[in-house]
Design a protein around this nucleic acid. Structure first.
Length: 306
DNA sequence: ATCCAGGACATAC
DNA sequence: GTATGTCATGGA
């Protein structure tokens, strides 16, 4: 079925820069394809699959989205489902102006990143399992390599779905699929030594040893402890999943870039450990810590400050 | 060629 | 708690 819908300004809290957000590479999941000026992605919604193509019209400050949906269901409308999903993935209900207002007037250090990043939003991954696997694949890996690997996982092991316009798209594989993939076969995606981490994580999800719904209900500390019980998941990858997979915005993944920039901007370059930086960000920024991490990261790389 | 990637883990003190 | 070596490839 083919549908065209819109998300209007009233449904978006504050500014939005769709392109900057989608291209910021934050969730570690495959980047949306660019087709005829529309950014395109797809997801399964309880057996129905929809590809949605999203384009921003009007300005950053008065954002408005056009969405073109193509599904594999000839009868049911997926308009409402896809609208909710897109609003969720792009975190359109996060009040960005409230974020700016919370720190700009006070002249907080993070506010110096605002002018060049207006409308940049945190994202959420397509679904928790995909987010978990993508997060694990990033450790000690480069952006180009893990992006390639995660795309290959999807296109090699994920189910192919034929849409009503005759096109075929690949969804990310389910836990039971990835759990039973042989290590040798998964290695063809270039994950190297992370391969066994991925399979083990998929197996634990499949067998219920890691319950993603339960993690969603857990508080930050509890969920993080459970996650770090998995091989290959340390504090940074756990925070990535908590932030992008579960939407826990107090999580601030501290990678080498955040470590450097926070030491430089907040501690006069002093040698502060990664753990302390993560804790510092959580305590100072609370529910905005994830946003602060996002803004500091792009500010640091854009200005080549570190 | 040779260096390193948006870390994790073991081992060392 | 903090410091150092290792991990396995592909891409720059």
């Amino acid at each position: 079925m083919h549908e065209e819908i819109e998300i209007s300004r009233e449904q978006i809290l504050g500014p939005l820069d769709l392109e900057a957000t989608l291209l910021s590479g934050q969730t570690s999941e495959p980047q949306w394809d660019l087709v005829d000026g529309y950014y395109s992605d797809a997801e399964d919604f309880g057996g129905r699959t929809a590809r949605y193509r999203v384009r921003q019209i009007r300005t950053r400050e008065e954002p408005h989205l056009k969405i073109v949906i193509t599904s594999n269901d000839e009868n049911a409308s997926l308009a409402r489902t896809v609208t909710d999903h897109v609003a969720n993935v792009l975190r359109l209900r996060d009040d960005l102006n409230a974020f700016y207002q919370a720190f700009d007037p006070k002249g907080d250090i993070v506010s110096k990143t605002f002018p060049q990043l207006i409308g940049l939003r945190l994202m959420r991954g397509n679904n928790p399992f995909e987010s978990l696997i993508s997060s694990i694949s990033t450790q000690h890996n480069s952006i180009v390599l893990w992006t390639k690997s995660v795309r290959l996982i999807r296109d090699t092991f994920g189910p192919a779905v034929r849409l009503s316009d005759g096109s075929t798209i690949h969804l990310f594989p389910k836990p039971d699929t990835l759990a039973s993939v042989r290590e040798h076969d998964l290695e063809t995606t270039g994950l190297t030594y992370r391969t066994k981490y991925i399979i083990e994580a998929a197996r634990r999800v499949r067998d219920g040893e890691l319950n993603l719904e339960e993690l969603q209900r857990d508080n930050y500390e509890t969920a993080k402890t459970k996650l770090m019980d998995l091989p290959g998941i340390g504090p940074k990858v756990a925070d990535c999943f908590l932030l992008y997979g579960l939407g826990k915005t107090e999580a601030a993944p501290v990678d080498i870039w955040i470590h450097r920039i926070v030491r430089k901007l907040y501690f006069q370059g002093a040698n502060v450990s990664i753990d302390k930086v993560a804790k510092f960000l959580r305590e100072r920024y609370g529910p905005w810590a994830g946003y602060v991490q996002l803004y500091l990261f792009h500010y640091a790389r854009k200005t080549r400050l570190v």
